[in-house]
Simulated scan of single mutants.
Amino acid sequence: MAWNEPGGGNNKGPRDPWGGGDQGPPDLDEALKKLQEKFGGLFGGGSGRSGGSSGGGSGISASLLGLVAVVVVGIWFFMGLYQIDEQERAVVLRFGKYVDTVGPGLHWNPPMIDEVIKDNITKVRQATLDEIMLTKDENIVEVKMSLQYVIDDLTKFVLKVRDPEISLQHAAQSALRHVVGDTRMDMVLTEGRAQIAADVRTRLQEYLNMYETGILISKINIDESKPPRQVQAAFDDVIKAREDEERVKNEAQAYANGVIPEARGSAQRQIEDASAYKEQVVANAQGEAERFTKLLTEYRKAPEVTRQRLYIDAVQEVYGNTSKVLVDVEGGNNMMYLPLDKLAPGQTSSAPRRMTLDSNTLRQITDAVTDQLRRDAAVSTSSSRGGR
């Protein structure tokens, strides 16, 4: 008997199928059957008609519809499940309005109500530009530039700009033209590429931050910069001339690096030689002054002896470099020639050589010659007196 039918031992109205009053827990089969009957009544099942066949067909239809409804609800539920990887982020929109930005993990949002837009924020993306523009000195150059970027803020990347990559292209063109327009042609074509790339990156990032694109520029390269084909030959000549200039400068610098240290070394050597000569002259002068002072002291003690010794030393110094000696004897009228090279031992006439005598040997020879001359003079004096 249905729960809304009167009956039983009480007349209190229809019974509560969910266990109201004194009843216990409801029977699940009976509750499912009642639910099927309810769905059957909604879809035109014969509620007012009687008959076993029509009532059975209505129950089968209601059961099938309930099963379909459960399957549809399950499919709808599983459609709302989605997985966010570690490198991804997702923006959730509900009826087109921003709700949240979710991170990695398993999430669920009601399908057909919420829209989930996910993207990889660690992927390095690339873009290229090939532009012809004017430089600061009003020359035309062709510049090829490549840039790398990542998504820094997915919310801004999805919602703030309609097409962020097109905006990136336009901003890159503007930044490149601005920087190249402030640079001379020779810098653009030669050693100024790195500085141009750095300036373009700074200016481009400022543009993207101002537009709120959510893009972060990681690297910019100036791949190629060249003049137009019409003036390529003239520019090649300019490059060759500049290379020759650098080569000549390097050769001159190498020559200067070789000559300057050598000149400095020579100058330092001359300074050292002059210093040594100065010290030598000063030392000799001081020695001569000291020797003269001591000689003066001895001369005052014995003038005659000192005078004789000075004379002998002078004669030794004069004749020390010759092999011939002339002796002048006091009281005689002849000068005697002594071949000292013959008198020296080990000396041959065929191979004359320079003889060096010390002061003692020269003094002995001088004394012997003087004594011999005196004896000869005495003998000749005696002979002359006897003859008279």
Rank of each mutant, 00 (worst) to 15 (best):
G7L: 05
G13C: 01
P14K: 01
R15W: 04
G21R: 15
Q23W: 14
P25M: 07
D27R: 02
K33V: 12
K33I: 14
G51S: 09
G52W: 08
S53V: 05
L64D: 04
L64S: 09
L65G: 08
V68M: 15
V68G: 14
A69G: 12
G74T: 14
I75M: 14
V91K: 01
Y98Q: 03
G105H: 09
L106D: 00
P111N: 05
P111L: 03
D114N: 14
E115S: 13
D119E: 10
I121H: 00
Q126G: 13
A127K: 07
A127Q: 12
K136F: 09
E138C: 02
V143P: 02
V158Q: 05
V161A: 08
D163E: 15
P164E: 13
I166G: 11
L176D: 00
R177L: 09
G181F: 03
E191A: 04
R193K: 15
Q195V: 13
R203N: 05
M210L: 14
E212C: 06
E212D: 12
T213D: 11
I215W: 11
I217L: 15
K219A: 08
I222N: 02
R229Y: 12
A233N: 06
F235M: 08
I239N: 08
I239M: 15
E245D: 10
E246R: 13
K249M: 00
Q253D: 07
Y255G: 05
N257R: 06
N257P: 00
N257V: 02
G258Q: 11
A263K: 02
Q268H: 09
R269E: 12
A285F: 09
G287Q: 13
A289K: 08
E290L: 12
A302Y: 08
A302P: 02
V305F: 09
V318D: 12
G320K: 04
G320M: 05
S323P: 03
K324I: 11
M335Q: 12
M336G: 06
Q347R: 06
R353G: 10
R353F: 08
T356G: 03
T356F: 05
D358N: 10
S359Y: 06
T361D: 07
Q364R: 09
D367T: 11
D371H: 12
A377P: 01
T381F: 09
R388D: 15
